[in-house]
């Protein structure tokens, strides 16, 4: 039905899509991916869709009321991208342009649903980045952070790649935080571009970004602390190894909590 709906005559002319959306990112060199897309390279388009589609749905979800609608918005955006590519002047990055279209469509859809996306809201989120119990009354660390071992994204932690855990933590963020973290850290958009696309103030974007990142960091911390041989156990494991290397009895894979 989404496909049929798009064939409605005259709709294309009604687009408020910022075909010439200009982000703050200055495009000084030709984008090889864009050139491949303009050359009708299907492989390039498939790679583009696989890289961004899931995160587009995630960002759209911040505006609209359900995952299904967010999925529709993302698919609709891709069709607009296909339509607009020949006229895309490359004055912003491709990512900026795609997400600007997405946000436009999501905002329109939200309005139709009577929803008002609120990127200022931090309701239910504790104002502190770190659990206040982790600090002494004078503001110094009472429970200082413990060192992680090197965070290899492909490392298996609790049976899954660390990167998969990070993806889950990202997905579990409150909607507004998630959208900002996706645009800034996953997509790598400049602050001003992300701010304009989401329609969020500079101050709110900074708060949302920091809280989102901190939540993911705290989640990783909890995960690594639970995982044998990582987090706060790392030091203990190294002691255990040393004991083994010294020839003393003791299991190599001992788990110390």
């Amino acid at each position: 039905m989404r496909w049929q709906a798009l064939t409605t005559p005259g709709q294309a002319a009604q687009h408020a899509i910022p075909i010439n959306f200009i982000g703050t990112t200055r495009v000084t060199e030709p984008d090889p991916l864009l050139e491949r897309l303009l050359a009708k390279d299907e492989t390039a388009f498939k790679a583009l869709v696989r890289r961004h589609h899931g995160m587009m749905v995630s960002v759209a979800r911040s505006f609209v009321g359900s995952h299904a609608i967010a999925e529709e918005v993302a698919q609709d955006t891709w069709l607009a991208v296909i339509d607009g590519l020949p006229r895309f002047e490359g004055r912003s990055t491709l990512k900026n342009w795609i997400f600007a279209i997405l946000a436009n469509k999501a905002r329109t859809r939200a309005e139709r649903e009577g929803r008002i996306p609120n990127f200022a809201a931090v309701d239910g989120d504790p104002p502190e980045t770190v659990d206040p119990n982790g600090f002494a009354p004078d503001g110094s660390w009472a429970v200082p952070p413990v060192a992680w071992e090197e965070l290899d994204p492909e490392r298996i932690v609790a049976g899954r790649q660390l990167m998969a855990h990070a993806a889950d933590l990202l997905d579990g963020l409150p909607a507004a935080q998630r959208s900002v973290v996706v645009l800034r850290d996953f997509e790598g958009l400049e602050p001003e571009d992300a701010r304009r696309i989401l329609g969020v103030s500079e101050a709110n974007q900074r708060v949302l970004l920091h809280r989102g990142r901190s939540r993911i960091r705290n989640g990783l911390m909890a995960l690594l602390a639970r995982s044998p041989g990582q987090g706060h156990n790392a030091r203990q494991r190294s002691i255990s190894k040393k004991v083994n290397n010294d020839g003393n009895a003791g299991p190599r894979d001992v788990t110390l909590y």
Partner: peptide, 23 residues
């Protein structure tokens, strides 16, 4: 390090039917 990790996260892929239609 958290930011680096998020940068390398793989977003959920579109389902095959959706991808096929878009292609």
């Amino acid at each position: 390090r958290t930011v680096e990790l998020v940068r390398r996260v793989e977003g959920p892929a579109p389902d095959p039917e959706t991808e096929g239609r878009l292609l």
